[in-house]
Design a binder for these strands. Structure first.
Lengths: 331, 331
DNA sequence: CCTGGCATG
DNA sequence: CATGGCAGG
């Protein structure tokens, strides 16, 4: 074989620990245990402070947009019908995008960021029903902005940041880079947060706590669960942000958003929670639900969806009032 | 687009010449003409000199043995059931060969030549029901023998050489190398021919005459139909060899063994005859038939099959006689 | 338009 | 075990 038993296997293996008590009849053969699945509960559409959700955002690492489109990922999107769709690992230059997505009428406002260096590597996208006030690419630091990893959209009452955080890679060869990324990205988010509250979504390429992956023991030295990456996430939260899913479901086990394609990891639910909606604390009162759509197929990640009540922009409210009086706003 | 209109298109285009007389009503739109197919006639199993075929050889450029096996190429082989099977462009290291072929009981004697440099490039094979006296690899010239292009098997009454001749490539970047190959390969074959007559089969990567491809006009500057490559083949014949198919069917048009995968060339029978059984002239009296199996799918080439009457080896005849007397030969 | 390899996840 | 890109045909 070309590669020895390595990271992926640890990543994919369930806990075959010594914990299981020996049965009377010494049966060595491992029983093929029934997988412990996570059944995402019905969407809650109301926030703690009693407001109705008025914004629905979906994030999905599609692992190659072209293949994902062929696998009918867009059918699922049309069904889910979020206000904003964020995609990661599009692996597609803008001019090579399938017409099926570039011409999608539901989302007239589409933003693409592709890797400048390597073709077919990385890349993120944001599709919006309503036009953002402003859209920017990258995090304002040359060294991080060549790989199409971040799009920031400013909306009246919040920033939406979608990110595909650099993988530390096999053998952790890119862990050092990841550490500087984590520092700089956190600084970028804090900066934004001083202007307006923000929602960060995407593949953050880290499982924060042991509860966030099936096999924490075997993965402490593997990309996505090193102490350094976990600490990076902890520091992000310490800077005034909240992991929306864990906030709502602090004890929920077996809730993952990624499963390696290898060794039938997904059918055994041997997975990781790598995809997040992270919110500025000030948005927390409006949080309605943070969903894991783990039945949606088409990638090695599943989509996640956020329901949130955000304050409407003043001009929107005004426009609404004016229309009630039969007048048309001039903006 | 990445590549401009180039070689392949000329290769795949039919003759949209100016020849067609303009109709009364100037109809510019090209009619989708019905393809002119070649229907290989029934196998002739008797030679001119009245002997029955006693040797059946099949040659097939499989364009990747592993994919070809998955596409059920071996089912066709079992049906055809040749005594010897020669394969080109196996693109597979010996240790990566599928068990389905390495364990094939019909052919106990199997010989593999793979490219030493590039993995998954070139490579030929020979599978035999009866064991050859001797098998050699390459043509005895270092510079040519690193790419797994030739296997020679010595049988009692003839040599069998299977070859995958170097492609001159796009832009003819390897035409110079091909010319030295042609010289050296011809010398090698002449050398062998002095010992025993030979059968050469395989993908010789040249369409010899205009009759041997659909679009000769458009391909005079393209790999496989340059004057240099055609001349190389002419010189091979001049050295005392015969193109068995053309010998039997001198006027047969539309008989091809290769169609580019592009632009539906195969369904339109826009092809090339690149695969041959070339015989020492002294074997000509035993030639029964030279077939083009153009219905067999699984590659961009189709297989070809030779029926020939070869003289049985003396020891074989003797063995046969002895067994008639109830005695066992000791060789 | 196919193949097999490669880097990356 | 998937993706997309690449060389080669």
């Amino acid at each position: 074989m070309k590669r020895g038993k390595k990271a992926e296997e640890a990543a994919a293996e369930g806990e075959n620990d010594t914990a299981s008590a020996p049965s009377k009849k010494a049966k060595a053969a491992k029983e093929p245990e029934a997988p412990i699945l996570y059944d995402d509960p019905p969407d809650k559409m109301t926030s703690k402070d009693g407001r109705n959700a008025n914004m629905k955002i979906t994030s999905w690492n599609v692992d190659g947009l072209r293949a994902w489109v062929k696998k009918k990922g867009l059918d699922w999107v049309r069904e889910e019908d979020p206000d904003i769709l964020c995609l990661q690992e599009t692996k597609c230059a803008e001019k090579a995008l399938p017409a099926e997505i570039t011409s999608m009428p539901e989302y007239p406002h589409k933003y693409w960021a592709a890797s400048g260096d390597k073709e077919g590597y990385s890349g993120v996208a944001m599709l919006c029903k309503t036009e953002p006030i402003k859209v920017t690419y990258g995090i304002g630091k040359e060294e991080h902005d060549k790989e199409g990893r971040v799009i920031t959209a400013e909306f009246p009452s919040f920033y939406l940041v979608t990110a595909y955080v650099p993988n530390a890679s096999r053998g952790l060869v890119r862990l050092d880079y990841r550490k500087t990324w984590d520092v700089d990205f956190r600084a970028y988010l804090s900066e934004l947060d001083m202007q307006k509250p923000l929602v960060l979504c995407g593949d953050l390429n880290v499982a924060h706590q042991e509860i966030d992956l099936k096999n924490p023991k075997g993965n402490k030295k593997n990309a996505g669960f090193t102490p350094e990456e976990r600490e990076g996430f902890s520091q992000l939260l310490a800077a005034g942000f909240v992991d929306s899913f864990r906030e709502l479901y602090p004890k929920q086990t077996n809730a993952y958003t990624f499963w390696t394609y290898m060794m039938n990891a997904r059918s055994k639910n041997v997975g990781w929670r790598l995809d997040y909606f992270v919110l500025s604390s000030s948005l927390l009162p409006g949080l309605c639900d943070s969903k894991i759509r783990n039945k949606a197929m088409g990638s090695d990640h599943c989509p996640i969806t956020l329901h949130i009540a955000v304050r409407l922009a003043l001009r929107k409210l005004l426009s609404h009032s004016l229309q009630a009086y039969g007048r048309t706003p001039v903006w």
